[in-house]
């Protein structure tokens, strides 16, 4: 039995503009010790999908549908009180924007210590030492001295490291890390990726890693889910995704890498995917990528392509899948 099973997850937000369908029928499962990367265009629903698991979405505005089962417990039906015990202990989270979850009024020593106190029975001194140890683990310079620092006194990358230290403090079963390395230089990034790998190896922690950095994906992920406009359009083992990307959107994503542009040399122009994402308030019965897709034909706009298997563990939702040119 997988550790975490997500089935037909739907997330909807109410806005002035009508309902926003942020996640539509997303399904995936996670084994113990597995690292699953979630990638896709800005606004495609990665954060909504991942944060629906611990039910950490904009309370009044979001509705969550579908089923999320962690280790036999169905989270979607759990009373909020039980959910609070699970958050921070069984499931911990690194948010995309550190300032949204750090409290500006408390020192970072207090904030990290609070999480440890809530879930363990360490005494004050032990908590303090554990906080220093965690801060050193994530490469915080002057760790002991920084205990008394407030979030605004830290650099962007330091705040991100505080979040990571907090998230790994209680040896979670599932770690959800939303863009955890965006503010980190490559050296510290390597250290953070090492921490994630070590958690997985030593404790069997499973990780949902949201990142737009395909270098990071290639380096640590076992599987990758590619999302487009709220839907899951490709799902593959990491090597297969890079070797034989199938969905035209995935192909476009790979072509847009600045490193590839740089390697093509000279001309300063990156390859874009032309056009815009469809408005998130619509949910047509068609391939949502069709308006931007060079392979689209009448069939693509007549009915939504189902997610189907092209290879071992490699799923794609497209009528004309396969590597090769898209233009």
């Amino acid at each position: 039995m997988p550790l975490l099973e997500v089935t037909d997850l739907r997330v909807q937000y109410r806005t002035e503009d009508g309902p926003v369908h942020a996640a539509k029928d997303v399904s995936f499962s996670l084994e113990r010790g597995e690292i699953l990367a979630l990638v896709g265009e800005s606004g495609c629903g990665k954060t909504a999908t991942a944060m629906a698991v611990p039910r950490l979405l904009d309370g009044g505005n979001a509705t969550i549908g579908g089923k999320v089962v962690l280790d036999g417990t169905e989270l979607t039906r759990l009373p909020e009180k039980r959910m609070q015990d699970i958050r921070g202990k069984d499931i911990s989270v690194v948010f995309q924007e550190p300032m949204t979850s750090l409290n500006p009024a408390y020192t970072i020593g207090k904030q990290i210590g609070e999480v440890i106190r809530r879930h363990t029975d360490m005494n004050r001194g032990q908590v303090r030492e554990r906080v220093v140890e965690l801060l050193e683990l994530v490469g915080m310079p002057d760790a002991r001295r920084r205990l008394g620092a407030y979030p605004h006194e830290l650099s962007g990358g330091m705040r991100q490291r505080v979040m990571i230290a907090t998230a790994v403090a209680c040896d979670p079963k599932v770690l959800i890390a939303d863009e955890p390395t965006t503010a980190l230089d490559v050296t510290i990034q390597a250290a953070v990726l090492d921490i994630i790998r070590r958690l997985r190896e030593e404790l069997g922690t499973a990780v949902i890693l949201i990142t737009h950095d395909l270098g990071v994906v290639a380096e640590v992920a076992d599987h990758v889910v590619v999302m487009y406009s709220g839907r899951h359009v490709e799902h593959a083992p990491t090597a297969a995704l890079f070797d034989k990307p199938q969905h035209p959107y995935t192909l476009g994503l790979m072509d847009a890498l600045p490193a590839r542009a740089a390697r093509r040399g000279g001309r300063r122009r990156l390859t874009e995917i032309p056009g815009m994402v469809p408005p998130p308030t619509t949910d047509p019965d068609a391939c949502q990528f069709a308006p931007r897709c060079a392979r689209a034909d009448a069939g693509c706009t007549a009915k939504r392509p189902a997610l189907s298997r092209v290879d071992d563990g490699h799923l794609v939702a497209c009528y004309h899948p396969g590597p090769g040119g898209t233009a």
């Binding site: 265009e41 800005s42 965006t182 994503l253 847009a256 122009r269 990156l270 390859t271 874009e272």
Partner: peptide, 13 residues
């Protein structure tokens, strides 16, 4: 820093 590569490409262009 928070943009996927395709949106990043259009923003950089």
């Amino acid at each position: 820093s928070a943009l996927d590569v395709s949106v990043q490409a259009s923003i950089l262009n």
